[in-house]
């Protein structure tokens, strides 16, 4: 399988700071997989994705060692435009990324930068608008729409450019429950299409875990753990200790396992339905056994 991203011995220290924010990162992200990144604040999550999308080192000053390659090309040597056609980045605060005065302009901005012809722009615009369900907002100012709509627009902007790699940095942290649901619906659609590498940093593990192929825990500038969601929480106390709270059904299932209500070989569920099924079975078994 081709790797979309390969990171070797990456170290990074921001200007005006004393400690390295990333310390010896080695990571391979296979093409068309979904990677969820979790961890407490200030542990290097955002720094890691900034170095994949080239903001580090192109837009930050600091000390850079090691390498990040996107489909074999080192990010260090690529131009901003080259990177933008390969990697799309959605920021946590959608408002910080507006560049235009209407949603429509905002959406075509990146496409115009890449020099697509007008027909192609229209085609990509329509597609991205369809996926993110913002067709009725095109004429509005990006500042006059709700937080959730803003974030959907921000995603549409990135989708429109059709990069093979899409990175989102806490895309739901500033929006309400309905808005969150919309975003995860979009992520689900993108994952199901299966033709894109997706990297998402998110505190909302409840929604993230069921989507991810792999979960990665950042701690102290290093990759502390990387595993498929089914096994990511095996060592639950340590995960909690790192400041990350598993889905409640997972926590409860872990308790069931520790208390002997389910067998030790039981894989911990992370999806709601799986969790309910496991709880129901455990309850039934426990009562039958009495």
């Amino acid at each position: 399988m081709t790797n979309a991203v390969v990171i070797k011995d990456l170290e990074w220290k921001y200007e005006h700071t004393t400690q390295f924010a990333l310390r010896g990162i080695n990571l391979e992200i296979p093409e068309n997989t979904f990677l969820g990144i979790v961890g407490a604040n200030e542990q290097g999550k955002t720094t890691l994705i900034n170095s994949i999308c080239g903001l580090i080192p192109h837009s930050f000053n600091g000390v850079y060692r090691g390498s990040v390659e996107i489909y074999g090309s080192p990010v260090l040597k690529m131009s901003g435009l080259e990177i933008a056609t390969q990697v799309g980045l959605v920021f946590a605060d959608p408002e910080a990324q507006f560049t235009a005065m209407t949603v429509e302009e905002e959406l075509v901005f990146g496409l115009e930068n890449t020099g697509y012809d007008l027909g192609k722009i229209k085609e990509r615009l329509d597609w991205a608008v369809g996926v993110t369900m913002i067709g009725d907002l095109l004429d509005k100012s990006p500042y006059d729409i709700s937080g959730g709509q803003k974030q959907r627009m921000a995603i549409a902007c990135v989708l429109a450019m059709n990069p093979p790699i899409i990175i989102m940095d806490e895309p739901t942290s500033m929006i309400d429950p309905l808005g969150k649901q919309f975003i995860f619906d979009i992520l689900r659609k993108l994952k199901d299409a299966g033709d894109r590498t997706i990297i998402v940093v998110e505190h909302n593990i409840e929604q993230l875990a069921p989507l991810a192929d792999q979960l990665l825990l950042m701690q102290d500038g290093q990759i502390a753990r990387m595993a498929p969601p089914a096994h990511f929480f095996d060592d639950l106390p340590n995960i909690v200790g790192s400041g990350v709270y598993p889905p409640e059904v997972t926590s409860f299932a872990y308790w069931l396992k520790q208390s002997g209500y389910v067998p030790p070989e039981q894989v911990l569920p992370n999806r709601f339905d799986e969790g309910v099924t496991l709880m129901q079975d455990a309850l039934r078994n426990a009562r039958d056994n009495r």
Partner: peptide
């Protein structure tokens, strides 16, 4: 990015 070098 919490460098504390705020002193002049």
């Amino acid at each position: 990015m919490a460098s504390m070098a705020s002193t002049a």
